[in-house]
Write a protein that binds this DNA or RNA. Structure first.
Lengths: 200, 200
DNA sequence: GTCTATATACTGATAGAC
DNA sequence: GTCTATCAGTATATAGAC
């Protein structure tokens, strides 16, 4: 939409700042002032680029939905079943490692009833999941994966991988300070788990 | 502390109401007025029983921590390894089904940095987890369970079971209205998963 | 113990100068 | 485009009558 380069830059800075604050304090816990300070702007100046606090939040969630579903879209029905699943697990875990704020933004939204993103779950998420669940079911039916419920299989991948972003504080508290980076251990564990679960 | 029966009842009513509101709106998203209305009390009357909004929240979290760890405490090193794990999984899943508000209260707190409950993670949770992880490690070492990382095994049980409470909205959106109760499917899936993961 | 009324502070958003 | 000043609405908590 006819934006100058400077406008796009400022909007990006605001989104970056907003993601930071929303993801750690939730929607209600975040103030426009906090976002403005993090973006190094005055409050009215920020509201010159976005009409309201809610507009920023909605914008972030909509942007995120696409990125979030990319790894699942890439699940290829022509590939090797177990490799495809393990690749998906690794990508989702990498997203938890590299985009923990996005994961928490999403988790906050779902946890509090998905009032803003709710519709997209039925219109965007469900059709994609149903499609991929069908692919997985065919693999299982063909004896190329051990049988189990495909939908719950996908739920389990989401919960296990996102846990390392969303519950990061708890994971680190339990593992203690001697574990600097839990992700290598996590990847090894999850690969083992899904291999034992699915390999024929 | 020298409370009359009526006082205890009112405090229980307040806690019940507060759990309802805090778990669906988060700490900042909750107003004292909402809690008061839900408890059918006036706002000043509510603040006669608790000194502040934060005091109610802290009280709930502290109470919850104990209940939350009970199923793990019952993991018995003299029992059959796989049965003990599966029982733990079933109990945790039952808690997600029967106490979803408590699960979400806890998830909200961890997700937003565990500012209030953080210390208890190191002093209460970690020692218990380390202890039970040792039991599991011994079972694995004795060849009674297939080897894997005990800490991450516990993480996986938490994330998989709590997912059905914390992400309930998403689970239902994906499964669609034809699935009335996802928990029986979930239990069957999780039992299969941990059996394949751990049975020798 | 419980209420009405209110003090005090914060927050989202806008007006208007520059 | 960006700022200072400020409004209107809301929130926590308290004062004081009963």
């Amino acid at each position: 939409m006819g934006q100058t380069r400077i406008q796009r830059t400022k909007i990006a800075v605001i989104c970056e700042a907003a993601l930071d604050v929303f993801s750690t304090h939730g929607y209600r816990g975040t103030t426009v002032d906090q976002i403005a300070r993090a973006a190094e702007l005055s409050k009215p100046n920020l509201l010159y680029y976005f009409p309201s606090k809610e507009a920023i939040h909605t914008h972030l969630l909509n942007q995120l939905m696409d990125t979030w579903l990319d790894p699942l879209r890439e699940l290829d029905h022509t590939g090797d079943p177990l490799s495809e699943i393990l690749t998906y697990v690794r990508r989702k875990l990498a997203m938890s490692r590299d985009m923990p704020r996005e994961s928490r933004l999403f988790a906050n939204e779902i946890l509090q009833g998905a009032e803003r993103i709710g519709p997209a779950l039925s219109t965007e998420l469900k059709p994609l999941v149903d499609d991929k669940a069908r692919v997985i079911a065919e693999w299982m039916h063909a004896g190329r994966l051990r049988a189990s419920d495909p939908h719950h299989l996908l739920f389990s991948i989401w919960s296990l991988t996102q846990h390392y972003a969303d519950f990061d504080v708890q994971v680190r508290a339990v593992l203690g300070p001697e574990v600097d980076d839990p992700f290598p251990e996590a990847e090894a564990y999850l690969v083992t788990m899904f291999t034992r679960m699915l390999s024929v």
